[in-house]
Design a protein around this nucleic acid. Structure first.
Lengths: 168, 168
DNA sequence: TTGTATTTTCAAAATATTCTGAAAATATTT
DNA sequence: AAATATTTTCAGAATATTTTGAAAATACAA
C-alpha cells in the first residue's frame, strides 16, 4: 500500500465510521485529513483535497474548533487562515469524551431530575414511573462519574505515562 | 404534572436525545414507552400510542431486540406477540455499552491494524502517518479495556450492589 | 385443506440532514 | 478612501434516512 492510498483509506474509513455514530462525515474527514497532514492547511487546500465546497469546509472547521479538535493558525505573511489538528491523540480522546459527556449524559440528568421534581408520587402508577426515572438518574450519574474518573486519572501526568507505557 | 404528561414528556425527550447521538428517534420512543409500561404491549398498541405505522413498529421492535433491550413474550391464548422492556436499568446500560463498544470501538481497532499491517514504514512521511495510526490504536485499545473493566466490575454482584447503594 | 390473523418486507413518499455556491460581511492592503 | 482578498452566511439543491402502507409471507385455526 502506498502513502496516498493509506491516507485515503484512513480518511474515508474515518468518515464512514463517524456517520455510524452520529457525527457528520465531512467533519470527520477534515479532521482525519488534518491529523495526517504534517503542515497546517487552509480552506482552499481542504476543498481541493476532499473535493467539497467552501461553505462546507468553513462550517465544519468551525464545528471542529468547537469540539476543541483543531486550532486556527495565523501564519506570518499569509492572509489565509491555516488549520492544524491536535496531534496528541490522548488529548483528542479526552476532548471527545468531554464533548460527548456534555451532549449525551448531561441532558439526561437534567430531564430526569426535571420530571422527578414535577411528579408527585401519589398513585401506584406514578410511583412506578418515578422508579424508572430514579433508576435512570442513578445509572446516568454513575456513567458521568465513571467518565470523570477516567478523565481525571488520564489527565494526571503520572498515570497518563504509565498507561502509555502499558499500552505499548 | 399528571401521569400521562410525565410519560409523554419522558418518551418525547428520550426520542429527541437519541437523535442527537445517532440513534433512531422512533426506536428510542418505543423503548421509552415499553420501559414505562407495566404490562407488555403488542404492535397495535404501540402503533396506537405513538401514532406510527405498523412497518415502522415492526422494524424498530426488531432492532430493539437486536440491542437486547426488549423481549418478545408469547401470552397463552393470545395470537399477537407482546413486547416488554428489560426494566433493570443497570442491565440496560450494560447492553447499550456493549453494543456501542461493538459498533464504535471495534471497527476502529480493525481498520487501524489493517492499515498498519499494509503500510511499510520506508519513508519519513509513511512513518509519520503510522505514528498517528499507532496512537489511535493505543487510545482505542485503552477505551476498549476501560469499558470492559467497568462492565466487568458492574457485572459482579458485590460491586454492583455496592455501587447501587453508593448511588442512592 | 382453506380461511383468517398476524408479522414481515420493501418500493415509494415523507422527512431530515448535509452540501453547494453565490452574495454579504469582514479584513487587509494600497 | 477604494480595491482586493478572505471568510461567513444561508436559501435552495442534493443526498441520506426514516416512515408508510399495502402486498407477500408466515402462523394458526377450523
Amino acid at each position: 500500500m502506498e502513502l496516498q492510498e493509506a491516507k485515503d483509506k484512513f480518511i474515508h474509513t474515518w468518515g464512514t465510521l463517524a456517520t455510524q455514530w452520529g457525527i457528520n462525515r465531512t467533519m470527520s474527514q477534515i479532521h482525519a485529513l488534518l491529523l495526517l497532514s504534517p503542515k497546517s492547511l487552509n480552506a482552499d487546500q481542504i476543498m481541493e483535497d476532499l473535493q467539497i465546497s467552501r461553505g462546507n469546509v468553513n462550517m465544519n472547521l468551525r464545528d471542529l474548533m468547537a469540539w476543541g479538535l483543531i486550532n486556527k493558525q495565523l501564519l506570518p505573511g499569509e492572509r489565509k487562515e491555516y488549520f492544524m489538528a491536535e496531534k496528541d491523540i490522548w488529548k483528542v480522546a479526552r476532548q471527545i469524551a468531554k464533548e460527548r459527556r456534555r451532549r449525551e449524559i448531561e441532558p439526561i440528568i437534567e430531564t430526569m431530575s426535571d420530571i422527578k421534581s414535577q411528579l408527585e408520587p401519589d398513585t401506584l402508577e406514578k410511583k412506578e414511573v418515578l422508579k424508572i426515572i430514579e433508576d435512570i438518574s442513578q445509572v446516568t450519574n454513575f456513567a458521568e462519574r465513571t467518565v470523570d474518573a477516567v478523565l481525571k486519572s488520564e489527565e494526571s501526568w503520572l498515570v497518563n505515562n504509565f498507561l502509555k507505557l502499558f499500552n505499548k
